[in-house]
């Protein structure tokens, strides 16, 4: 807008008209090009998704059977399933999210609402962003020294905590970003009605930012549902049926990690089935959450 209008030098209405015409054409053309590129970008993104899902379906579906859901992992050649791994993944992912989300939400709220100008706020924001890029294996190692060595063994709890540590910074980032974008007018309205600050945050801001925060939580779930590295040294994995959080616990990613490179066809097949299950499980969760959280408009 700005650059364009300055280049017109007035010298007669006819010439102005021509220049304006050329300019308008140029602007329209530019607009079309950008729109076309955007469409192209979207097509690329979707193409990747389709390619990945197609690969998973192609390699995973043929291994699907009822036995996958009703039998625990077994040695090669024994018709094993994934029951314990599926359940372990569900438990640890749910628990990790349950621990990490409230903390992340609070930290994000602190950063957006209470930390203005404070050194502590800057520091917290900074470390939270650094935590985002922490390789998950290092988080696993940290939880290992924190919860596994002192308590003398691997446990589902340790795995869940490791996952929670990954959830926190993702939720923090999206929560803060979303809260900051809520128009001042909305808060002022709440204050004018005599609501205390915490109420205006919980009932006005959280609600207004709901979609964005939910996106953050879903991204976090998506990320931890497929994490192998932090579980390897915390919940270890379990070949047998076990839902005891105090004991080693199986999970789908760890099972994939150990089966995918094995010499045996049935294990490799199960690895692809597990991959299919994680991906489509998270997919279904996303779609479901989107439907539940349908925007008000």
């Amino acid at each position: 807008m700005t650059g364009a209008s300055q280049t017109i030098h007035a010298s007669g209405p006819a010439r102005d008209g021509k220049i304006a015409d050329r300019l308008a054409r140029k602007r329209r053309f530019q607009n079309h090009v950008v729109q076309g590129l955007c469409l192209f970008a979207t097509a690329i993104g979707l193409a990747f998704l389709v390619l990945i899902l197609a690969t998973l379906l192609h390699l995973g579906v043929k291994g699907l059977s009822l036995g996958v859901f009703t039998t625990v992992t077994k040695p090669p050649g024994s018709n094993g399933g994934l029951l314990n791994a599926i359940l372990g993944s569900l438990i640890q992912t749910a628990l990790g999210t349950a621990i990490g989300t409230p903390i992340g939400l609070l930290v994000g709220t602190y950063l957006a609402e209470y930390s203005a100008g404070s050194k502590l706020g800057d520091a917290v924001r900074f470390v939270s962003d650094v935590l985002l890029s922490a390789p998950s294996i290092l988080i696993g190692l940290f939880v290992y020294t924190l919860l596994v060595t002192p308590f003398g063994g691997f446990s589902g709890w340790a795995g869940s905590v490791a996952l929670a540590v990954i959830v926190i910074p993702i939720v923090v980032r999206t929560t803060e970003d979303m809260l900051r974008l809520i128009p001042v007018a909305m808060r002022e309205a709440a204050v004018a009605l005599g609501a205390p600050k915490w109420k205006s945050i919980v009932f006005i801001c959280y609600r207004a930012a709901r979609d964005g925060i939910a996106t953050g939580v879903l991204l976090a779930i998506a990320r931890i549902a497929g994490e192998t590295a932090p579980l390897l040294f915390t919940s270890l994995g379990n070949l047998n049926w076990s839902v005891d959080l105090g004991k080693p616990m199986a999970s789908l990613p760890v099972t994939i990690y150990q089966y995918a490179g094995s010499p045996f066809d049935d294990w490799v097949q199960l690895a692809w089935v597990a991959a299919l299950l994680i991906t489509f499980g998270v997919l279904a969760l996303n779609v479901l959450a989107r439907i539940v959280l349908r925007p008000r408009s």
């Binding site: 998704l49 990945i52 991204l219 497929g226 991906t279 996303n286």
Partner: peptide, 17 residues
Amino acid sequence: IAVELLAAVPSIIYGMW
């Protein structure tokens, strides 16, 4: 939703794929 689903694919799957 479809684009967000790209984030739902576990990293080990990206590796295998």
